[in-house]
Design a protein around this nucleic acid. Structure first.
Lengths: 206, 206, 206, 206
DNA sequence: CATGAATGAGTATTCATTCAT
DNA sequence: CATGAATGAATACTCATTCAT
């Protein structure tokens, strides 16, 4: 976590540092991001940086947290309506939330994707803390609930299915950014529905 | 490509260098891999390294190639029987081949996965040559063929479905390495078949 | 140009670095000068060096500039009296200025001479900027003026004569350093006047 | 001197090595010339090179010697007619010989010029041997003879005048290569005569 | 006489971090 | 809280030369 000194900063300055850091990590990734470049662009002294953050990792952790926090907001409304929705409606919301977040925060999205895909387990542990929040587990929960409520085939392997869906959920934003470009929301919805059809009924000839 | 000097080396030495390089790239990734560390571990002089390889990228390219070559061997038999198989049988072989490769070559598998997931497009272009072979396209081809042969629902969005399956194909080795540990082959087959069931018929309650 | 950090340094330190760099370039020339040797002698950290200068070329450029600046000072007074002097009086001043500079700044003089004689046109362009100031042209101008004022034989080939005189002007400092050793100024003047006699009337038997 | 092994080589090979070395030194100068590049272009083994030559310097020495030898041939005829010529006729022959050599052997000429201008005294001593044959001395001799024979003003400072003329003799080839381009011999003669006029009668208004 | 692999000290440059003011 | 100079280990890479065969 950043030190108190950082949060005591004038908002304008704090935001400037944050935005520039996001830019840096989005473009260069964690390893190749350069503190020197950041402080130069942000027009703060090198020493000041280390008064705000423990070190490079501390800044990165913060940026990732900000992204996660923002992303969560795209799902907040879910929690409320959750009870009334079945599994596929929920997945629909999750897909849409993920895409929306990626569309509106492409840099944070990129940082998050890159980070999740990285194999630097050491870094992951340090950034996410001990409790690497297996996003798996959330979807696993949904699947179990879906089975209980009779939406989902009880014959599936839950863990594996959760992995399939998680993997895919995570790659979805990237796919929309890279391949689909910015389509209007109607088109996005249509594509999401086609995806869900597949998840639901598979791809075999009906 | 490594220089001839490398291939003229005694096999023992050549393998030592290769193995140590694979270790290095698997642990640190391309950017953070250190030539100094490699030559030290391999007990060769720095200058010697540069008699064998143009530069770091040349070594990496070689390691990736070795991995690709090895992986291909897991699919060679496919090409033959390809005509008689339907889409789902083919996917089954692809999954199994991928898993087998990952099980038997975890480090090379890691290197390949990391590399494919990396966002350093420049590096990709240089390592893979101009024609970055979108693995998407292969599966796209299979899907189109599957539709033509009546195995697959013509209503699907081919591009998107190809992306779903590619994403998953690529994460599958990783999944087995990380989650499933080394199970016996029977169990693996069973799991693969469950996956295919899902791809084929979806997860909804039948 | 060195960075501000360099000019903010304590004068003692700044001079130490400058002197040691001058030594290094004078002895080894640009190509063979070693940053490592410089920082070691100057007892500064390697990283510090790169806080002061962009790179090796930046340091060299600075050293050359310092030399040029110093040399110019030996000619400043010329500009004023220029109007009243004829060509031979001007050349006299130029010779004397060059010799004086070389006598009092032998290392800078060496560096400048070496640099001007070097065949690395790329380096020259980068150090001197696009406008490689052909010293030829200055003397060409003086010759033309001399002809107009009736001091100089209009039958000479101006370009070639300018080249003769320039070449000689440049080698003059070197000559005095190497061959004549440090004589008193009276003797130097006498020699300079003999030179001018030759330039003026040639060496044939009168 | 190259080792005997070099002179035992088939003429074709020996010449190939020589020509390629001349190219290399002409383009890169002594310091930046690369043995690796030479052996590669000449298609000989690295080890073979060191069977022919002691080291890089040994090769350079040889190349310089070859150039000097060739240059000397442009002056051989001089020695015969020397007795009948006066100083200015001799200088004329020397200028013309120098230009001719530079025109017909531009690479060797470049190597020689660069070498003579270099300030690496250590190298000079090693290449030329202890008795650095001051070309000064040759012209000094001519001047003294000229004075004795009544061609030249006895009032001149012989040493200094020799330096002036030497400096100029050496820069003359360069001047013709760089500025005058390949003119026909008539024009060259005319320019040489103008030069000599200046040396003889100076540049003052007659 | 030919070969070419082995060597290792050397190069310029980068970068996160510390520390004194 | 701000500053920016100081640090030094680390990086990829080069090159003339040696040596065993």
């Amino acid at each position: 976590m950043p030190k108190n000194t950082f949060f005591n900063l004038a908002e304008e300055k704090r935001n400037r540092i944050l935005e520039i850091s996001i830019d840096e990590f989005a473009v260069f990734g964690y390893q190749n991001a350069s503190i020197s470049r950041i402080v130069e662009k942000a027009e703060i002294a090198k020493g000041s940086f280390y008064q705000y953050f423990e070190d490079k990792k501390d800044l990165f952790k913060y940026v990732v947290d900000v992204g996660a926090e923002k992303k969560l907001n795209y799902f907040r409304h879910l929690m409320e309506g959750m009870q009334e929705m079945d599994f596929f409606q929920l997945m629909r919301e999750i897909f849409i939330g993920g895409i929306q977040f990626a569309k509106e925060n492409p840099k944070l999205s990129t940082i998050g994707d890159q980070f999740m895909k990285s194999t630097d387990e050491q870094l992951k542990k340090e950034v996410l803390g001990e409790n690497i929040p297996k996003s798996n587990q959330f979807i696993e929960g949904l699947l179990i609930r879906g089975i209980a409520q009779g939406d989902i085939d009880p014959a599936i392997d839950v863990k594996m299915t959760a992995h399939m869906l998680t993997t895919f959920t995570m790659s979805i934003g990237e796919y929309f950014i890279k391949e689909v470009r910015v389509k209007d929301n109607m088109e996005i919805m249509a594509l999401v529905d086609k995806m869900l059809e597949i998840v639901k009924y598979g791809i075999h000839r009906k």
